[in-house]
Design a protein around this nucleic acid. Structure first.
Length: 419
RNA sequence: GGAGAGAUGGCUGAGCGGUUGAAAGCACCGGUCUUGAAAACCGGCAAAGGGGCAACUCUUUCCUGGGUUCGAAUCCCAGUCUCUCCGCCA
């Protein structure tokens, strides 16, 4: 959510910044609504003051007049709230402003590669895609999931289920013990206000799985990412500066409708309606957003370093960033069967954009109340990490070598194989 | 599912129709004292919104939404959440 005051003072810059994201704002409309809103507030406050004075005098002769004023106030405040709702509807659907160092572009083709890491393994056989490997191991079953549930779900069995669990635990332990994140096991369901806070609502309702409840006013959603619930842990709070930064980590299932991605990544478990993800969330002083973004991204890539998986770090362009982000790094891991890099983590700074929606504030060293900065990043997407391990660690016989760092989590198993 | 109790500022907690935006304590900030710190003492300290270059000023807010009243944190109604007891249950 943007601060209308900032927009008012600088509407041309605001327009320009959003244009970088291909968003055209109706400048005149916003300006008029804002003016109208303030006019009505002023009129209303004048009457309120008058009314207040009458009741202070306790003069019975003026009581009738006070009643009349009440009616006028009622009307004004109805009009005003209507205008305010219109204005807020517009403002709440506008994405965050990109930072200056974010490249401008309309889609992922304009993303900028920062650096490649790790070595791409040369296979002396044709590397198989993960779903073939999983299928022949009898440890990934997509057909069964289709039968029980529907498309874009999967049964993970046997040692791959262990691998999935091992990955979660390995990532969690690393972030908790090495990177100083606080482990959280959060609710997987969020209410409407929470979803609004991080920016999933109102604009992206179609991507969410909503629960069917008896009470239509009580709306609840399966979380599309733990970012939603972890970031909202500071909703409606006024924190002390000494409490910051807060760093949370959770491994949770994530649920996404993937609306509009028909025909995209239909094979395998690249794009699923449900997947595990280890999520990092930081709550910081707004000035520290940039440093924290670098730190967080390093925490994420550190996992790939330890797993010895090749990857590259991308700086997303304006057109490819998420709604709430001011700057985003994607980490892409090497997928041998596709002969390309695929997103495995996305780390974003959201400045005070989400904080303003959540009313998450802190008192700075001067004792002034201010909105916090929020960041979120995957550290990492567990399902896609499993894909990367299957493909990068595959052997010619279809077995999968277990990465060294995971062995302690998998009964010191050397290889995942069929019998 | 049944029966009660409650929801007040960053936190704890008074107030139960008229200078109450709200006592007190804690926390926090500034100062005195101290070599420094602690303690003690003095002072300050809610948020949101509007107006003003500013000093400042106005309005709203005591869970949410309605209602009663000239006037509501205080009374009435509905809802949400929390706690206790009983029942049921992973």
């Amino acid at each position: 959510m943007h601060n209308i005051k900032d927009i008012r003072d600088n509407i041309d810059n605001f327009e320009k910044s959003l244009l970088k994201r291909n968003i055209k704002i109706e400048k005149a409309n916003i300006g008029n609504l804002d003016k109208e809103n303030r006019k009505l507030i002023q009129d209303k406050e004048l009457l309120e003051k008058e009314k207040k004075n009458i009741s202070k005098t306790k003069d019975q002769n003026l009581f009738e007049k006070s009643k009349e004023i009440s009616k006028k106030i009622e009307k004004l405040s109805r009009d005003q709230s209507e205008i305010k709702i219109k204005l807020d509807t517009i403002l709440s659907s506008l994405p965050n402003i990109p930072l200056d160092d974010v490249p401008v572009g309309k889609d992922e083709n304009s993303n900028v590669e920062i650096k490649k890491f790790g070595e791409i393994k040369k296979f002396d056989f044709k590397p198989k895609p993960h779903f073939e490997l999983g299928n022949s191991l009898n440890m990934l079953d997509f057909d069964l999931a289709t039968k029980t549930t529907g498309s874009r779900f999967v049964f993970v069995k046997n040692q791959l289920a262990l691998l999935e669990r091992a990955l979660s635990n390995f990532m969690l332990d690393t972030h908790i013990n090495k990177n100083n994140y606080l482990e959280i096991s959060p609710p997987l369901i969020a209410n409407e206000n929470t979803m609004y806070g991080t920016g999933q609502l109102p604009k992206f309702e179609n991507d969410q799985f909503e629960l069917v409840l008896d009470d239509k006013n009580d709306r609840k959603f399966l979380i599309p990412t733990a970012e939603v619930i972890l970031t909202n842990m500071v909703k409606d709070k006024i924190l002390q500066v000494k409490d910051l930064p807060l760093r949370f980590v959770a491994s949770t299932p994530c649920f996404r409708k993937e609306a509009g991605s028909y025909g995209k990544d239909t094979k395998g478990m690249i794009r699923q309606h449900q997947f595990y993800k280890v999520e990092l969330v930081s709550i910081v002083e707004p000035n520290n957003c940039n440093d924290e973004l670098e730190r967080m991204t390093n925490c994420a890539t550190n996992i790939l370093d330890l797993l010895k998986l090749p990857y590259r770090k991308m700086l997303l362009c304006t057109g490819d960033m998420g709604f709430s982000a001011e700057k985003t790094y994607d980490i892409e891991v090497w997928i041998p069967s596709e002969n390309k890099y695929r997103e495995i983590s996305s780390c974003s700074s959201c400045s005070s954009f989400q904080a303003r929606r959540m009313k998450a504030r802190y008192k700075n060293s001067k004792n002034e109340t201010n909105f916090v900065g929020t960041l979120n990043g995957s550290g990492l997407a567990v399902g896609r990490t499993m894909i990367a391990i299957l493909e990068n660690y595959q052997q010619s016989d279809g077995s999968i070598k277990v990465p060294d760092v995971l062995k302690p989590y998998m009964n010191n198993m050397e290889k995942i194989h069929n019998n």
